[in-house]
Amino acid sequence: MPWLPRAALLWDVVLGFGGTAAFLIDLGADLWAAGQYVVSGRYLWAALVLALLGLASVALQLFSWLWLRADPAGLHAPQPPGRCLALLHLLQLGYLYRCVQGLQQGLLVWRQEAPSEFDLAYADFLTLDISMLRLFETFLETTPQLTLLLAIVLQSGRAESYQWVGICTSFVGISWALLDYHRALRTCLPSKSLLGLGSSVVYFLWNLLLLWPRVLAVALFSALFPHYVALHFLGLWLVLLFWVWLQGTDFMPDSCSEWLYRATVATILYFSWFNVAEGRTRGRATIHLVFLLSDSVLLVVTWVTHIAWLPGGIPLQMLLPVSGICFLLGLALRLVYYRWLHPRCRQEPDRVDGAWGLRSLEWRRLPQNRRMAQLAQSFFPRVRDEAALPQKGEANGVL
Protein backbone atom coordinates (compact mmCIF):
# COMPACT_ATOMS: atom_id res chain seq x y z
CA MET A 1 0.00 0.00 0.00
CA PRO A 2 1.35 3.45 -0.80
CA TRP A 3 2.66 5.51 2.07
CA LEU A 4 0.10 8.32 1.76
CA PRO A 5 -3.00 6.10 2.11
CA ARG A 6 -1.46 4.36 5.12
CA ALA A 7 -0.69 7.73 6.67
CA ALA A 8 -4.29 8.80 6.04
CA LEU A 9 -5.56 5.64 7.72
CA LEU A 10 -3.30 6.26 10.71
CA TRP A 11 -4.53 9.83 10.91
CA ASP A 12 -8.13 8.56 11.00
CA VAL A 13 -7.23 6.29 13.92
CA VAL A 14 -5.54 9.17 15.76
CA LEU A 15 -8.62 11.35 15.27
CA GLY A 16 -10.77 8.51 16.58
CA PHE A 17 -8.67 8.25 19.72
CA GLY A 18 -8.77 12.02 20.12
CA GLY A 19 -12.55 12.17 19.80
CA THR A 20 -13.06 9.39 22.33
CA ALA A 21 -10.60 11.01 24.75
CA ALA A 22 -12.32 14.38 24.37
CA PHE A 23 -15.67 12.79 25.20
CA LEU A 24 -14.27 11.15 28.33
CA ILE A 25 -12.51 14.36 29.43
CA ASP A 26 -15.69 16.38 28.98
CA LEU A 27 -17.67 13.76 30.90
CA GLY A 28 -15.10 13.87 33.69
CA ALA A 29 -15.24 17.67 33.81
CA ASP A 30 -19.05 17.59 34.14
CA LEU A 31 -18.95 15.03 36.94
CA TRP A 32 -16.20 17.02 38.65
CA ALA A 33 -18.29 20.17 38.46
CA ALA A 34 -21.39 18.37 39.79
CA GLY A 35 -19.37 16.99 42.69
CA GLN A 36 -17.99 20.42 43.55
CA TYR A 37 -21.49 21.89 43.53
CA VAL A 38 -22.68 19.18 45.92
CA VAL A 39 -19.74 19.79 48.25
CA SER A 40 -20.43 23.54 48.29
CA GLY A 41 -24.13 23.00 48.92
CA ARG A 42 -25.30 24.13 45.45
CA TYR A 43 -27.60 21.16 44.98
CA LEU A 44 -29.76 22.78 42.29
CA TRP A 45 -26.73 23.46 40.10
CA ALA A 46 -25.53 19.89 40.58
CA ALA A 47 -28.99 18.56 39.71
CA LEU A 48 -29.13 20.65 36.53
CA VAL A 49 -25.68 19.44 35.42
CA LEU A 50 -26.62 15.80 36.01
CA ALA A 51 -30.06 16.24 34.40
CA LEU A 52 -28.56 17.64 31.19
CA LEU A 53 -25.99 14.87 31.19
CA GLY A 54 -28.62 12.18 31.71
CA LEU A 55 -31.08 13.44 29.09
CA ALA A 56 -28.37 13.75 26.45
CA SER A 57 -27.05 10.28 27.25
CA VAL A 58 -30.49 8.70 26.93
CA ALA A 59 -31.04 10.36 23.54
CA LEU A 60 -27.61 9.22 22.38
CA GLN A 61 -28.29 5.62 23.35
CA LEU A 62 -31.65 5.71 21.56
CA PHE A 63 -30.06 6.90 18.34
CA SER A 64 -27.33 4.27 18.57
CA TRP A 65 -29.77 1.45 19.29
CA LEU A 66 -32.25 2.44 16.57
CA TRP A 67 -29.47 2.64 13.98
CA LEU A 68 -28.10 -0.76 14.94
CA ARG A 69 -31.57 -2.29 14.68
CA ALA A 70 -32.07 -0.72 11.24
CA ASP A 71 -28.70 -1.78 9.80
CA PRO A 72 -28.63 -4.81 7.46
CA ALA A 73 -28.48 -8.18 9.18
CA GLY A 74 -24.93 -9.48 9.53
CA LEU A 75 -23.29 -6.16 8.71
CA HIS A 76 -21.78 -5.75 12.17
CA ALA A 77 -20.86 -9.39 12.78
CA PRO A 78 -19.41 -10.46 15.09
CA GLN A 79 -21.46 -8.57 17.67
CA PRO A 80 -22.34 -9.25 21.28
CA PRO A 81 -25.65 -11.11 21.71
CA GLY A 82 -28.71 -8.94 21.28
CA ARG A 83 -29.45 -8.86 24.99
CA CYS A 84 -25.88 -7.85 25.84
CA LEU A 85 -25.99 -5.09 23.25
CA ALA A 86 -29.30 -3.85 24.62
CA LEU A 87 -27.88 -3.97 28.16
CA LEU A 88 -24.89 -1.87 27.07
CA HIS A 89 -27.24 0.81 25.77
CA LEU A 90 -29.42 0.56 28.87
CA LEU A 91 -26.31 1.17 30.98
CA GLN A 92 -25.54 4.25 28.82
CA LEU A 93 -22.46 2.60 27.32
CA GLY A 94 -23.67 2.26 23.73
CA TYR A 95 -21.77 5.26 22.43
CA LEU A 96 -18.53 4.20 24.08
CA TYR A 97 -19.01 0.71 22.65
CA ARG A 98 -19.31 2.22 19.19
CA CYS A 99 -16.14 4.26 19.75
CA VAL A 100 -14.23 1.14 20.79
CA GLN A 101 -15.63 -0.77 17.81
CA GLY A 102 -14.60 2.02 15.44
CA LEU A 103 -11.08 2.15 16.88
CA GLN A 104 -10.70 -1.62 16.58
CA GLN A 105 -11.80 -1.57 12.95
CA GLY A 106 -9.51 1.38 12.19
CA LEU A 107 -6.51 -0.36 13.73
CA LEU A 108 -7.39 -3.57 11.87
CA VAL A 109 -7.39 -1.74 8.54
CA TRP A 110 -4.21 0.18 9.30
CA ARG A 111 -2.28 -2.93 10.30
CA GLN A 112 -3.15 -4.81 7.10
CA GLU A 113 -0.73 -4.53 4.20
CA ALA A 114 -3.59 -4.74 1.70
CA PRO A 115 -6.92 -4.25 3.52
CA SER A 116 -10.03 -5.46 1.76
CA GLU A 117 -12.42 -2.90 0.38
CA PHE A 118 -15.11 -4.23 2.70
CA ASP A 119 -12.91 -3.52 5.72
CA LEU A 120 -12.19 -0.02 4.42
CA ALA A 121 -15.85 0.73 3.75
CA TYR A 122 -16.94 -0.74 7.08
CA ALA A 123 -14.38 1.39 8.93
CA ASP A 124 -15.85 4.51 7.33
CA PHE A 125 -19.37 3.28 8.01
CA LEU A 126 -18.61 3.12 11.73
CA THR A 127 -16.74 6.45 11.71
CA LEU A 128 -19.68 8.24 10.12
CA ASP A 129 -22.12 7.02 12.76
CA ILE A 130 -19.72 7.94 15.57
CA SER A 131 -19.26 11.42 14.11
CA MET A 132 -23.01 11.97 13.97
CA LEU A 133 -23.49 10.74 17.54
CA ARG A 134 -20.67 13.01 18.70
CA LEU A 135 -22.41 15.98 17.10
CA PHE A 136 -25.69 15.10 18.81
CA GLU A 137 -23.95 14.74 22.17
CA THR A 138 -22.28 18.10 21.66
CA PHE A 139 -25.51 20.05 21.23
CA LEU A 140 -27.68 18.02 23.58
CA GLU A 141 -25.21 18.06 26.48
CA THR A 142 -21.97 20.01 26.00
CA THR A 143 -23.47 23.26 24.67
CA PRO A 144 -26.30 23.46 27.25
CA GLN A 145 -23.76 22.60 29.97
CA LEU A 146 -21.52 25.42 28.76
CA THR A 147 -24.43 27.86 28.81
CA LEU A 148 -25.36 26.78 32.33
CA LEU A 149 -21.75 27.06 33.45
CA LEU A 150 -21.39 30.58 32.08
CA ALA A 151 -24.66 31.60 33.73
CA ILE A 152 -23.39 30.28 37.07
CA VAL A 153 -20.11 32.18 36.67
CA LEU A 154 -21.98 35.36 35.76
CA GLN A 155 -24.24 35.02 38.80
CA SER A 156 -21.38 34.35 41.22
CA GLY A 157 -18.99 36.85 39.68
CA ARG A 158 -16.01 34.46 39.74
CA ALA A 159 -14.91 31.18 38.19
CA GLU A 160 -13.28 28.29 40.02
CA SER A 161 -10.55 26.17 38.42
CA TYR A 162 -12.92 23.33 37.54
CA GLN A 163 -15.24 25.85 35.86
CA TRP A 164 -12.42 27.24 33.71
CA VAL A 165 -11.58 23.68 32.69
CA GLY A 166 -15.21 23.08 31.76
CA ILE A 167 -15.48 26.30 29.74
CA CYS A 168 -12.30 25.69 27.74
CA THR A 169 -12.96 22.01 27.03
CA SER A 170 -16.56 22.75 26.04
CA PHE A 171 -15.72 25.46 23.50
CA VAL A 172 -12.98 23.40 21.90
CA GLY A 173 -15.09 20.22 21.99
CA ILE A 174 -18.06 21.88 20.30
CA SER A 175 -16.01 23.35 17.48
CA TRP A 176 -14.12 20.09 17.06
CA ALA A 177 -17.38 18.11 16.81
CA LEU A 178 -18.62 20.46 14.08
CA LEU A 179 -15.35 20.12 12.18
CA ASP A 180 -15.35 16.34 12.57
CA TYR A 181 -18.94 16.15 11.32
CA HIS A 182 -18.12 18.35 8.32
CA ARG A 183 -15.11 16.20 7.53
CA ALA A 184 -17.25 13.06 7.82
CA LEU A 185 -19.82 14.45 5.39
CA ARG A 186 -17.14 14.99 2.77
CA THR A 187 -16.19 11.31 2.86
CA CYS A 188 -19.69 10.49 1.56
CA LEU A 189 -19.12 12.26 -1.76
CA PRO A 190 -16.49 10.79 -4.11
CA SER A 191 -16.42 14.02 -6.13
CA LYS A 192 -15.38 16.26 -3.23
CA SER A 193 -11.96 17.80 -2.70
CA LEU A 194 -9.64 17.27 0.25
CA LEU A 195 -10.34 19.04 3.52
CA GLY A 196 -6.93 20.63 3.89
CA LEU A 197 -5.33 22.15 6.95
CA GLY A 198 -6.28 25.69 5.98
CA SER A 199 -9.92 24.77 5.34
CA SER A 200 -10.04 22.90 8.64
CA VAL A 201 -8.66 25.84 10.61
CA VAL A 202 -11.05 28.34 9.02
CA TYR A 203 -14.05 26.05 9.51
CA PHE A 204 -13.05 25.43 13.13
CA LEU A 205 -12.59 29.13 13.86
CA TRP A 206 -15.76 30.48 12.31
CA ASN A 207 -17.88 27.95 14.18
CA LEU A 208 -16.12 28.84 17.43
CA LEU A 209 -16.44 32.60 16.87
CA LEU A 210 -20.12 32.47 15.90
CA LEU A 211 -21.02 30.11 18.72
CA TRP A 212 -19.51 32.26 21.50
CA PRO A 213 -21.85 35.30 21.12
CA ARG A 214 -24.93 33.05 20.97
CA VAL A 215 -23.97 31.07 24.07
CA LEU A 216 -23.06 34.28 25.93
CA ALA A 217 -26.40 35.92 25.07
CA VAL A 218 -28.36 32.93 26.40
CA ALA A 219 -26.09 32.73 29.46
CA LEU A 220 -26.63 36.44 30.25
CA PHE A 221 -30.39 36.00 30.04
CA SER A 222 -30.18 32.82 32.15
CA ALA A 223 -28.14 34.57 34.84
CA LEU A 224 -30.71 37.36 35.11
CA PHE A 225 -33.92 35.37 34.55
CA PRO A 226 -33.17 31.75 35.53
CA HIS A 227 -36.88 30.95 35.81
CA TYR A 228 -37.72 32.17 32.30
CA VAL A 229 -34.89 30.75 30.22
CA ALA A 230 -36.69 27.39 29.97
CA LEU A 231 -39.74 29.14 28.50
CA HIS A 232 -37.52 31.01 26.06
CA PHE A 233 -35.87 27.78 24.94
CA LEU A 234 -39.18 25.94 24.63
CA GLY A 235 -40.77 28.72 22.58
CA LEU A 236 -37.90 28.92 20.09
CA TRP A 237 -37.48 25.15 20.05
CA LEU A 238 -41.11 24.65 19.01
CA VAL A 239 -40.71 27.17 16.17
CA LEU A 240 -37.52 25.46 14.99
CA LEU A 241 -39.11 22.02 15.31
CA PHE A 242 -41.97 23.17 13.08
CA TRP A 243 -39.45 24.50 10.57
CA VAL A 244 -37.58 21.19 10.52
CA TRP A 245 -40.86 19.30 10.05
CA LEU A 246 -41.78 21.52 7.08
CA GLN A 247 -38.53 20.48 5.37
CA GLY A 248 -39.67 16.85 5.30
CA THR A 249 -36.71 15.08 6.89
CA ASP A 250 -36.22 11.37 6.24
CA PHE A 251 -33.28 10.30 8.36
CA MET A 252 -34.49 7.66 10.81
CA PRO A 253 -35.87 4.16 10.10
CA ASP A 254 -39.51 5.01 10.90
CA SER A 255 -41.80 7.98 11.38
CA CYS A 256 -41.83 7.76 15.18
CA SER A 257 -38.05 7.81 15.58
CA GLU A 258 -37.91 10.57 12.98
CA TRP A 259 -39.42 12.91 15.56
CA LEU A 260 -36.50 12.17 17.86
CA TYR A 261 -34.18 13.31 15.09
CA ARG A 262 -36.25 16.43 14.39
CA ALA A 263 -36.30 17.33 18.09
CA THR A 264 -32.52 16.96 18.21
CA VAL A 265 -32.02 19.08 15.08
CA ALA A 266 -34.27 21.78 16.56
CA THR A 267 -32.00 21.83 19.62
CA ILE A 268 -28.93 22.20 17.40
CA LEU A 269 -30.58 25.05 15.49
CA TYR A 270 -31.16 26.88 18.78
CA PHE A 271 -27.39 27.36 18.93
CA SER A 272 -25.98 26.83 15.43
CA TRP A 273 -26.83 26.21 11.79
CA PHE A 274 -27.59 22.66 10.68
CA ASN A 275 -28.88 21.80 7.20
CA VAL A 276 -31.30 18.89 6.77
CA ALA A 277 -32.93 19.49 3.38
CA GLU A 278 -31.75 19.33 -0.21
CA GLY A 279 -31.51 22.38 -2.44
CA ARG A 280 -29.81 25.71 -2.08
CA THR A 281 -28.86 26.32 1.53
CA ARG A 282 -27.89 29.98 1.28
CA GLY A 283 -31.43 31.26 1.79
CA ARG A 284 -32.23 28.97 4.71
CA ALA A 285 -28.85 29.63 6.34
CA THR A 286 -29.39 33.40 6.03
CA ILE A 287 -32.87 33.18 7.53
CA HIS A 288 -31.54 31.13 10.42
CA LEU A 289 -28.62 33.51 11.01
CA VAL A 290 -30.90 36.56 11.06
CA PHE A 291 -33.34 34.74 13.34
CA LEU A 292 -30.66 33.79 15.88
CA LEU A 293 -29.00 37.19 15.68
CA SER A 294 -32.29 38.98 16.30
CA ASP A 295 -33.09 36.73 19.24
CA SER A 296 -29.60 37.16 20.71
CA VAL A 297 -29.84 40.95 20.42
CA LEU A 298 -33.22 40.90 22.18
CA LEU A 299 -31.77 38.78 24.98
CA VAL A 300 -28.84 41.15 25.43
CA VAL A 301 -31.07 44.25 25.32
CA THR A 302 -33.34 42.69 27.94
CA TRP A 303 -30.29 42.06 30.11
CA VAL A 304 -28.90 45.57 29.58
CA THR A 305 -32.17 47.25 30.57
CA HIS A 306 -32.11 45.45 33.92
CA ILE A 307 -28.45 45.46 34.92
CA ALA A 308 -25.45 47.27 33.47
CA TRP A 309 -22.62 45.51 35.28
CA LEU A 310 -21.79 41.91 35.90
CA PRO A 311 -21.35 40.66 39.48
CA GLY A 312 -17.79 41.02 40.66
CA GLY A 313 -17.28 44.30 38.80
CA ILE A 314 -16.76 42.91 35.29
CA PRO A 315 -17.82 45.77 32.99
CA LEU A 316 -20.41 45.04 30.36
CA GLN A 317 -18.70 47.60 28.12
CA MET A 318 -15.79 45.15 27.75
CA LEU A 319 -17.73 41.90 27.39
CA LEU A 320 -20.32 42.75 24.76
CA PRO A 321 -17.99 44.56 22.30
CA VAL A 322 -15.66 41.55 22.36
CA SER A 323 -18.60 39.29 21.56
CA GLY A 324 -19.65 41.59 18.74
CA ILE A 325 -16.15 41.50 17.27
CA CYS A 326 -16.15 37.70 17.55
CA PHE A 327 -19.45 37.54 15.67
CA LEU A 328 -18.25 39.81 12.86
CA LEU A 329 -14.95 37.96 12.56
CA GLY A 330 -16.72 34.60 12.56
CA LEU A 331 -19.15 35.82 9.90
CA ALA A 332 -16.23 37.06 7.78
CA LEU A 333 -14.43 33.70 8.08
CA ARG A 334 -17.65 31.90 7.20
CA LEU A 335 -17.97 33.97 4.04
CA VAL A 336 -14.32 33.30 3.20
CA TYR A 337 -14.86 29.58 3.67
CA TYR A 338 -17.93 29.36 1.45
CA ARG A 339 -16.41 31.68 -1.15
CA TRP A 340 -13.02 30.02 -1.60
CA LEU A 341 -12.75 26.83 0.49
CA HIS A 342 -16.11 25.08 0.05
CA PRO A 343 -16.05 21.86 -2.08
CA ARG A 344 -18.07 23.49 -4.84
CA CYS A 345 -15.16 25.93 -5.33
CA ARG A 346 -12.44 23.28 -5.63
CA GLN A 347 -13.75 20.05 -7.12
CA GLU A 348 -11.02 17.47 -7.48
CA PRO A 349 -12.70 14.14 -8.30
CA ASP A 350 -9.63 12.00 -7.77
CA ARG A 351 -8.72 13.30 -4.29
CA VAL A 352 -10.69 12.26 -1.25
CA ASP A 353 -10.18 12.10 2.51
CA GLY A 354 -9.23 9.08 4.57
CA ALA A 355 -10.02 5.52 3.73
CA TRP A 356 -12.68 6.33 1.12
CA GLY A 357 -9.94 7.41 -1.22
CA LEU A 358 -8.87 3.75 -1.49
CA ARG A 359 -12.18 2.50 -2.87
CA SER A 360 -12.57 0.82 -6.24
CA LEU A 361 -15.34 1.50 -8.74
CA GLU A 362 -17.35 -1.39 -7.26
CA TRP A 363 -17.95 0.45 -4.00
CA ARG A 364 -21.75 0.18 -4.47
CA ARG A 365 -21.49 -3.42 -3.26
CA LEU A 366 -19.88 -2.37 0.02
CA PRO A 367 -21.43 -1.16 3.29
CA GLN A 368 -22.70 2.37 2.77
CA ASN A 369 -24.05 4.73 5.39
CA ARG A 370 -27.19 6.04 3.71
CA ARG A 371 -27.98 8.21 6.72
CA MET A 372 -24.87 10.34 6.36
CA ALA A 373 -24.82 10.18 2.56
CA GLN A 374 -28.26 11.76 2.49
CA LEU A 375 -27.16 14.57 4.80
CA ALA A 376 -24.02 15.05 2.70
CA GLN A 377 -26.08 15.69 -0.42
CA SER A 378 -28.11 18.23 1.53
CA PHE A 379 -25.00 19.92 2.92
CA PHE A 380 -23.19 20.01 -0.45
CA PRO A 381 -26.04 20.77 -2.89
CA ARG A 382 -23.71 21.48 -5.83
CA VAL A 383 -21.47 18.49 -5.33
CA ARG A 384 -23.92 15.69 -5.94
CA ASP A 385 -22.99 12.18 -6.88
CA GLU A 386 -25.58 9.57 -7.80
CA ALA A 387 -23.54 6.84 -6.17
CA ALA A 388 -23.34 8.61 -2.85
CA LEU A 389 -26.99 7.90 -2.03
CA PRO A 390 -28.06 4.27 -2.51
CA GLN A 391 -31.75 3.67 -2.80
CA LYS A 392 -33.78 2.29 0.06
CA GLY A 393 -33.82 -1.46 0.05
CA GLU A 394 -30.62 -1.77 -1.95
CA ALA A 395 -28.39 -4.61 -0.86
CA ASN A 396 -25.90 -3.67 1.85
CA GLY A 397 -27.61 -0.28 2.22
CA VAL A 398 -28.96 1.20 5.40
CA LEU A 399 -32.62 1.58 6.29
Rank of each mutant, 00 (worst) to 15 (best):
L48F: 04
S57W: 03
L93A: 06
L216E: 04
A8G: 14
T187C: 15
L55N: 06
G279I: 03
P81F: 02
P367H: 00
Q368Y: 02
S191K: 10
V13C: 10
A123H: 04
W11R: 06
F204N: 04
L91R: 13
H306R: 12
Q92R: 08
L194M: 11
A51Y: 04
R262G: 07
R364T: 12
L333T: 00
K192P: 11
L211K: 05
Y162G: 07
A33K: 03
L96Q: 07
D385Y: 10
Q377L: 08
A8M: 09
W237V: 01
G19N: 02
V100W: 12
V276D: 00
W164H: 08
L91G: 11
S323M: 03
P144N: 10
L15G: 08
S57Q: 09
V100M: 14
Q247F: 01
T20H: 12
L179A: 13
V336S: 13
A332V: 06
Y337A: 05
A47V: 09
E113H: 07
Y337L: 14
R214M: 02
Q104V: 09
P367W: 00
T281M: 14
E117M: 05
L133I: 11
E348W: 12
A8F: 14
G94W: 03
F63V: 00
R69Q: 12
L293G: 08
L55M: 04
G354Y: 03
H227L: 04
V300T: 06
I152E: 15
L10T: 10
C168V: 09
L85P: 01
C326E: 14
P72M: 05
L135I: 09
R334V: 04
L9S: 06
S64E: 07
R364L: 15
W176M: 15
L333V: 08
R382M: 08
V49D: 06
C188Y: 13
I174L: 09
A77F: 02
A86M: 03
D119Q: 05
L331S: 01
T305A: 15
F63S: 02
Y95A: 10
L75D: 05
V265T: 07
V244A: 08
E258Q: 14
E278Q: 00
V109I: 04
